[in-house]
């Protein structure tokens, strides 16, 4: 237990966060790439065809993990936002601002793959069904968090606190937005085609396996990308602190051909 508390405290200070996570980046990237490669090959070539949708269902191996990540990352942005707002934690601020663009990217990927899938399935790229609509609104929430931060670029600390406030407001509203959107579609139109591969979901293990592998791969990719972004965020916002010049010196020494 003591170890966990110690670890938590260490992760709260920018220098030790930087030092500890530096060791994680390479393994995370290897895991993310390896799992993606395996998941895609498994999903695209070895998983059986769907009896209704044929081969076109295979886009779920990208679409569904991306959709999961789009929600999961907003939760992280929101929680990091609370930590930024209440405790003014520098590292939480970095995690929040590092996560937002990745979340927005996954949201955009979800929307795009959804549209590509919609064309053969529904005969149209866009359909105002509950999932796609709330995903689109989620994208606006991400844009709001990033937009307010970008607008206050002359004062990053103020920008981060305002972005945190926007993230928290979004987090409070997300359930209301999703509920209202689902309620709206249930009234205006019949329930649309389920995105989870037919009405009874995926039961075949050969189909489920690549999906789960891809879900893991996106998690590792997120961790890798978020941590490296958070690191550069900290280097940038703390550039006048001593630990930053030490960290950069240390890196320069490890690389041959770079003279300081």
């Amino acid at each position: 237990m003591n170890r966990i508390i110690k670890f938590y405290h260490e992760m709260g200070s920018p220098p030790s966060f930087y030092r500890i996570t530096s060791h994680w980046l390479t393994p995370l990237l290897v895991l993310a790439l390896g799992l993606t490669l395996y998941g895609l090959i498994d999903g695209l070539f070895f998983a059986p065809e769907d009896y209704q949708q044929g081969d076109s269902y295979r886009i779920i191996f990208v679409h569904v993990p991306a959709a999961w990540m789009s929600m999961f990352i907003y939760a992280i942005v929101g929680v990091a936002g609370i930590m930024t707002f209440v405790w003014r934690m520098k590292v939480a601020e970095a995690v929040m601002m590092a996560s937002a663009p990745i979340g927005a990217l996954f949201t955009a990927v979800t929307l795009l793959t959804g549209m590509l899938w919609g064309k053969p399935m529904w005969g149209t790229y866009w359909d105002w069904d509950a999932r796609m609509t709330s995903e689109l609104i989620l994208l606006f929430l991400y844009i709001g968090v990033m937009g307010i931060y970008a607008a206050y670029d002359e004062d990053p600390r103020k920008a981060a606190r305002l972005a945190a406030l926007v993230a928290i407001i979004g987090l409070v509203n997300l359930p209301i937005i999703r509920y209202s959107v689902y309620w709206w579609t249930s009234i205006h139109q019949g329930s649309s085609v389920s995105l989870m591969g037919g009405s009874n979901g995926i039961q075949d293990w050969d189909m489920l396996r690549p999906l789960l592998v891809m879900a893991l791969a996106t998690k590792f990719y997120f961790l890798y990308s978020m941590l490296s972004r958070a690191q550069s965020y900290l280097l940038k916002t703390e550039q006048h602190k001593q630990w930053v010049s030490k960290a950069i010196d240390g890196q320069a020494r490890h690389k041959p051909g770079v003279s300081s």
Partner: peptide
């Protein structure tokens, strides 16, 4: 413009219930 982006998602439920 930024205000619209920030407020629009919050207004979505209001529009749904009101226009509904």
């Amino acid at each position: 413009m930024l205000l619209s982006v920030l407020v629009m998602p919050l207004l979505a439920p209001v529009l749904i219930f009101g226009a509904g």
